[in-house]
């Protein structure tokens, strides 16, 4: 029953639209306002529901090229998840450890993780760029970025 990509996506989108519709119907309404806050969301929810049903019943018409895009080699999946994990760590510690430390570490380890072997260039770039950007924002433009545990 659920063969074909369109069917799966159609189903997911239908669930999404039902969730969105449910929330739209919870919105408060006010007297004396001709088109209330819930009107547009309700319309959008129903339209998406109709479209997802249409997608469900439409034939898969993807080209070979498009199908190839979906086949990600295992090695690349690992790389993507790795970069994702690095990003998550970056965001989580960004305000605690501060912009400079986190960005230097991020640029260095992300490049290294992705296979950049020239450690000297990598170190220079990952130190110079974040510090340069930090100085521009904080000292020149007086826009505060998280300083974290560093004294400046």
């Amino acid at each position: 029953m659920l063969q074909g990509v369109n069917r799966k996506i159609g189903l997911i989108l239908a669930l999404l639209s039902i969730g969105y519709l449910y929330m739209s119907y919870q919105l408060p309404t006010y007297p004396y306002i001709p088109v209330d806050a819930d009107a547009v969301p309700k319309t959008l929810g129903w339209v998406l529901l109709v479209l997802s049903v249409a997608l469900f019943f439409s034939k898969d018409s993807d080209s070979e090229e498009q199908k190839a895009k979906r086949r990600i080699p295992k090695k690349d999946v690992k790389a993507l998840l790795g970069v994702g994990a690095l990003l998550l760590i970056y965001i989580m510690l960004f305000e605690t450890l501060g912009f400079i430390i986190m960005t230097v570490l991020f640029v260095y380890f992300c490049s290294w993780f992705l296979g950049y072997k020239n450690h000297i260039v990598n170190a220079i770039v990952s130190i110079v760029f974040p510090i340069a950007l930090y100085s521009i924002f904080v000292f020149m433009l007086q826009i505060k970025l998280p300083q974290g545990i560093l004294p400046f």
């Binding site: 260039v121 770039v125 110079v128 760029f129 340069a132 100085s135 020149m140």
Partner: peptide
């Protein structure tokens, strides 16, 4: 490597030029 260096110099040039105009407030 050379290209990278060129890039760095370019960025530093920008910084120097921009830093200049703000020295008064610093």
């Amino acid at each position: 490597m050379k290209k990278l260096l060129a890039l760095l110099i370019f960025v530093l040039m920008f910084l120097a030029a921009c830093g200049g105009e703000n020295t008064s407030s610093n």
